[in-house]
Simulated scan of single mutants.
Amino acid sequence: MSKKKPLSKGQLRRMRDNQSKRLSRKASAADTPELQDNLLGAEQAGTVISRFGQHADIETIDGVTTRCNIRRNISSLVTGDKVIVRLATETQPGTGIGGIVEAVHPRTSSLTRPDLYDGVKIIAANIDQILIVSSVLPSFTTQIIDRYLVACEDTDISPIIVLNKVDLIDDDNQAEIDQALARYQAIGYPVYRVSSHTGEGVEKIKALLDDKVSIFAGQSGVGKSSLINALMPDADLLVGDVSDNSGLGQHTTTTARLLHFKSGGDLIDSPGVREFALWHLPAERVGWCFIEFREFLGTCKFRDCKHGDDPGCALQAALKSGHITQDRFYNYQKIITSLGEQRHARHFRSLED
């Protein structure tokens, strides 16, 4: 009888991590106080303000927020979800729990983020628009903007490009930034320039948020929290400085939560990510998400055209004729290349499980 191959260090590490997660979930479930049905009131509508493990803060139509248990048959619950909740009719000392989430309404939209270990995760739900925040510091890059634009197009959520820290623009970067933003405007994307430091453009952003559910997206360090504080001073969000040594921003938000504007409209403040991975999308879908590519897709000489050096490539012809810009085409190719690398990394890590 052959001997079993010993587990690798990676396999052992993943086994320990998975066991720890299972034990943590069991402990959390065991510690969750159960509310008896006879102590619960009638069903009513609510909105998820934030999610904390087995609990969620639910706001009902009267504006009151209550921390509630989540029924075990609810597999997914995120900030922005519309739910049916039953609140406790009697206070139960020491529990801190005031109700139970009974059901979740279908989502009108959802923003997802792929994770190399856990697959595609939903970040927030029922979003009307995504404000893609970039800035002069730590560095202005269209590659990150285009990744977020692909995510917006894929989920059919309207994007708005916001350049923050415009007070830091100087003669060295003025032309490059102006040209990049003009390219986005030329293909139909709205672009706004703001400074959370000086207040420039803040009122225009406020007007965009009225009667909408919005979410801010962008690299760490671009000033999302500072901009939200400028738009909503009562939010009292943490603000992190950009590291002088690395130039990378520090994550300042740990749990997504829904905030209200006094003038109307909601804002979901979500944990920042440094790069929006897209490995879950097929290459054909990524190409479609570059909106100016759409009229040329499917018109190449060969059906399996990779849009590289392939003869008769319609995208290459559009690039030469000026219908597609070099910057956008380069970013598209970078994303396509990264898809294979990220899928390979995910497959390699899954082999260690």
Rank of each mutant, 00 (worst) to 15 (best):
D57E: 11
V83P: 10
A103F: 02
G94M: 05
V83Y: 04
K121E: 09
N69Y: 00
G63T: 04
T89W: 02
N73T: 06
G119R: 02
T47D: 04
R72N: 13
A88T: 11
I123A: 08
G119Q: 00
R67A: 10
E90F: 02
T89Q: 15
P106C: 08
T112M: 13
S50R: 15
V64Q: 11
T66S: 07
L77K: 00
T91A: 14
T66G: 05
V104L: 09
E102P: 00
I74L: 14
D81M: 01
I84K: 12
D62H: 01
R51P: 00
D81V: 02
I58N: 08
D81S: 05
Y117V: 15
T108H: 13
I97G: 08
E90R: 12
D118I: 02
D81A: 04
I70W: 09
E102V: 11
R107T: 07
T89E: 15
S109V: 12
Y117M: 08
G98M: 10
R113P: 06
R113A: 10
E90Q: 15
I61P: 03
I74D: 07
S50H: 00
T66W: 07
E90D: 10
F52L: 10
G53Q: 04
S109W: 07
S50A: 12
H105C: 12
A56I: 01
V64S: 13
E102H: 05
R86I: 01
F52E: 12
V85S: 12
H55I: 03
D81F: 04
V64H: 11
D57V: 02
G98E: 06
R51N: 06
I70M: 08
G46Q: 00
T95H: 03
V78S: 06
T47V: 13
T95G: 08
R86T: 03
P106A: 10
R67K: 10
P106F: 07
V101W: 10
I58G: 08
T112E: 15
S50W: 01
I123D: 06
I61W: 05
S110G: 13
T108L: 09
G53C: 05
G46L: 06
V85K: 04
A88G: 14
G99T: 00
E102G: 01
E59I: 03
T66K: 10
T89P: 00
K82M: 05
N73A: 07
F52Y: 12
D57H: 03
G63Q: 09
A125L: 03
G80M: 05
A125K: 04
A124Q: 08
S110T: 15
V78E: 08
T108Y: 00
V101P: 12
E102R: 11
A124P: 05
G119D: 01
Q54Y: 05
T47R: 12
R67H: 01
D115F: 00
I123Q: 14
E90P: 00
Y117R: 15
V120N: 09
R86F: 02
L116D: 01
I61V: 09
V101H: 13
V83S: 12
Q54I: 05
I122N: 07
R107E: 11
E90S: 15
H55V: 01
G80F: 03
R107G: 09
S75D: 07
G119A: 01
R86M: 10
R67F: 03
D118C: 02
I100L: 15
R72T: 07
I70N: 07
V120D: 12
V78M: 02
I61M: 12
T91N: 11
T47N: 04
L116S: 15
C68V: 02
R113Q: 08
L77V: 05
